[in-house]
């Protein structure tokens, strides 16, 4: 029942996202319209894939760092990706893939640094250090980013600023194809870790005694969730709150068993971002809001309601 509802919402979100836009396309011509095929369809699909990736990565990371407030971007990836993207803008790197690749490289650099910090106490990844290291690396990267932006000229500044708040306006079938080929592996790794993640909620020692290979699971989940987030941020910029709010909404409905929770967070995240992107490009048409603004405007009120529930329960 709840699955049927979620899938229905997701399908409606995708259909609405394709059907609605600044340019009026008559319903009867939707399937024949160039605007739909070349602009809206890839953008809708990309929004769904990016939102889904952020949702499932957030759910996995919350279980890994044993902190319900974890967000895929809390681990320093957004800072690294932002620095990469702003460098690409400041250095006038051209070509359709320059910006995504630079952002991806920045995210990977941050990922490697935070991962190395997480191993600081020995061979086993320490989730507390991951969190603290992520915040520190993120802040450091953001400082350098701001330094570069402050020296840039006005148009570069605007581009960089918009990128940092996320957007899907550069969506293309190529980008969709890249994500479709890239995402299944980290997603499969996360799904395969469902049971050990359930055990990890009891703590590392109890999880080990119940049969989880804890150290390997922590490494796999961190790398899979981070690589997924790095790809998402490369094609769409920093889109906040999807990876934080969606797993919590999914937990309310699906409980805490990751076998059901992780797929629900993927579909829910995809639906939410498809809806948010539709709003981002229609409410101030013909101009566009960065989609991160919309997710924050939706996400923050929802999140405060969740916090209320959290403190009552």
């Amino acid at each position: 029942m709840k699955w049927a509802l979620l899938v229905t919402v997701a399908v409606l979100a995708l259909v609405a996202s394709v059907a609605v836009g600044p340019a009026a396309v008559p319903l009867g011509e939707l399937l024949r319209s160039d605007i739909v095929w070349n602009l809206r369809a890839p953008r809708t699909l990309l929004a769904f894939l990016v939102g889904g990736s952020l949702g499932i990565a957030g759910a996995g990371l919350q279980a890994l760092v044993r902190n319900p407030l974890a967000d895929p971007f809390l681990l320093g990836l957004s800072g690294g990706a932002g620095l990469g993207a702003v460098l690409a803008i400041a250095l006038h790197l051209s070509g359709p893939w320059a910006l995504p690749l630079a952002a991806f490289a920045g995210a990977l650099a941050a990922l490697a640094l935070v991962y190395r910090l997480g191993l600081i106490g020995g061979a086993a990844l320490d989730p507390r250090i991951l969190l603290l290291g992520g915040v520190a690396i993120g802040a450091f990267a953001a400082a350098i980013t701001t330094a570069i932006v402050s020296l840039a000229d006005a148009s570069e500044l605007r581009n960089a600023f918009l990128w940092l708040w996320g957007g899907l306006s550069s969506a293309s079938w190529d980008a969709v194809l890249v994500i479709v080929l890239y995402a299944p592996i980290p997603i499969a790794v996360l799904l395969a870790a469902s049971r050990p993640l359930d055990l990890l909620a009891l703590g590392e020692e109890p999880a080990r005694y119940l049969g989880a290979d804890v150290d390997a699971v922590k490494r796999r989940v961190y790398l899979a969730a981070s690589l997924l987030t790095a790809a998402a941020v490369a094609v769409s910029g920093v889109i906040g709150f999807v990876g934080l709010v969606v797993p919590h909404l999914a937990r309310l409905t699906w409980g805490h068993r990751h076998r059901a929770l992780l797929p629900a967070a993927f579909v829910g995240g995809g639906a939410l971002l498809a809806i948010a992107d539709t709003l981002a490009r229609t409410v101030v048409a013909p101009r566009e809001l960065p989609v991160g603004v919309v997710t924050a405007l939706i996400g923050v009120p929802v999140f405060t309601l969740l916090l209320r529930r959290w403190t009552i329960a």
Binding site: P68, A201, L202, E205, P206, Y209, R251, H256
Partner: peptide, 11 residues
Amino acid sequence: VVPQREDNLFP
């Protein structure tokens, strides 16, 4: 094993 301590992160 029944370890000395455990947490319940989620209800």
